[in-house]
Structures are given as structure tokens and as C-alpha cells.
């Protein structure tokens, strides 16, 4: 229950730590985000902060969208995202949220859309084994049996088959922030994050699962 930041994935590289180890990092252009709406329990029934990210030209947005952003005197923004909070009293309309809200060493969850792979077959989608490619075999990338015969007389639901792969909302949990560049609003996050360079990602402080003790 804390405010995160929206950003654009820029790509991956590696940096060396004090011990000289190479650490794979993803570079994210995080923010600056503008608070476009503050929701309170009295007015809206719950507390939350809505932030906007991604400047666009005025003509890219509709009049209702521009009217909503006018209340916070924000420039036209492409993406709006709401973060629920216990209390939203600390935030004011038009406030800037920048990358320096994070500190190196902090753990974050990164939410994004994975790379879409279209209609993918059994091997790519479910890691099935392949049949022999030669020696007279005609079973190359087929699924094999999908179940028993007359009993039950149907394929059980949930049977892994070919279909759409990727392009889904993915959360990668507990990634470490390696470096924060406050001037350029850059975050260096250890490891890979969903999507291609240019993809929109949502970075939030890592969610505590279970009891802290």
C-alpha cells in the first residue's frame, strides 16, 4: 500500500559492483509522474492517489481527459494509474513523483506486459518435448496424446495446448534497485523485467508477503 512510479523500459546492460562482479541491470526511465487526483475515504469511499505519466501533445487526448488533467494543472499525459493507500493525506494535486523516491538496495516489484508471441505451439508455450526430426518420423512438433479414449470421451479442461502466448500482465517480484539517477530520472534494476524496450512498466516497493517476523 504505497505509491509507485510509472516508467519506460529502455533496455539492459551490466554494471560492476564494488567486488568487481558484473550485475545484469535493466535501465528504466521512471517518471517524473504527476499526481492528477487524490482520492479520500470521505469523498470517494477509499484513499488512493492517481498519477499520470508520459507527456503527449494536446490533440492526442480527448476533451474529457484534458478536463480531468486540467484540475491538477498537469500537461497532457498518456497513462494514468491509481495507487491505493491507507491515507492519501500526504499528497497534493500536481505533486511530482520522481525516481529518487527509491534508494539503492531497495526491493521493488515490477509490473508490465510481457512480449506477445502470438499463437504459439506446444514447445514454445508449454515446453513440450519435440519428436524426432528424421529417421522416418512424421511426429515433429505434435502434442502426443491429449487423454484417454471412450472414458471419459472428452479432453479435460486445462489440458495444455497451443494458443496465445505472452502479451499478458506480468509481475516480477523482489527485484533489487542497483542505482538511482535522480537528475535523469533513471532506475537501474537488477535482472530482467517484462516487455520490450519502450514498454510501460509500473514499479512499486516490494509487497511484503506473510509476516515480517
Amino acid at each position: 500500500m504505497s505509491v509507485g512510479i510509472l516508467g519506460t523500459k529502455l533496455g539492459m546492460t551490466q554494471v560492476f559492483d564494488e567486488a568487481g562482479k558484473a550485475i545484469p541491470v535493466t535501465v528504466v526511465q521512471a517518471g517524473p509522474c504527476t499526481v492528477t487526483q487524490v482520492k479520500t475515504a470521505e469523498l470517494d469511499g477509499y484513499s488512493a492517489v492517481q498519477v499520470g505519466f508520459g507527456e503527449v501533445t494536446e490533440k492526442a487526448l480527448s476533451k474529457p481527459e484534458l478536463g480531468h488533467l486540467k484540475k491538477s494543472e498537469a500537461s497532457p499525459l498518456r497513462h494514468l494509474k491509481e495507487y491505493r493507500l491507507d491515507s492519501s493525506g500526504d499528497y497534493q494535486l500536481g505533486q511530482q513523483i520522481k525516481a529518487d523516491m527509491f534508494t539503492p538496495g531497495q526491493e521493488v516489484d515490477v509490473i508490465g506486459t510481457s512480449i506477445g508471441r502470438g499463437f504459439a505451439g506446444y514447445q514454445k508455450r508449454h515446453n513440450f518435448k519435440r519428436g524426432p526430426m528424421a529417421h522416418g518420423s512424421k511426429n515433429h512438433r505434435l502434442p502426443g496424446s491429449t487423454g484417454a479414449g471412450t472414458t471419459p470421451g472428452r479432453v479435460y479442461p486445462g489440458k495444455r495446448m497451443a494458443g496465445r502466448l505472452g502479451g499478458k500482465r506480468i509481475t516480477v517480484k523482489k527485484l533489487t534497485i542497483v542505482r538511482v539517477d535522480g537528475d535523469r530520472n533513471l532506475l537501474l534494476i537488477k535482472g530482467a523485467i517484462p516487455g520490450k524496450p519502450g514498454a510501460l512498466v509500473n514499479i512499486v516497493p516490494a509487497k511484503q508477503v506473510g509476516n515480517a517476523n
Binding site: T8, L10, V27
Partner: peptide, 9 residues
């Protein structure tokens, strides 16, 4: 994006 990554490297 590439320039930023190059500047980090």
C-alpha cells in the same frame, strides 16, 4: 534509450 545506456556503460 541507446544513448542513455551507452552513457551508463
Amino acid at each position: 534509450a541507446q544513448e542513455i545506456i551507452r552513457s551508463i556503460e
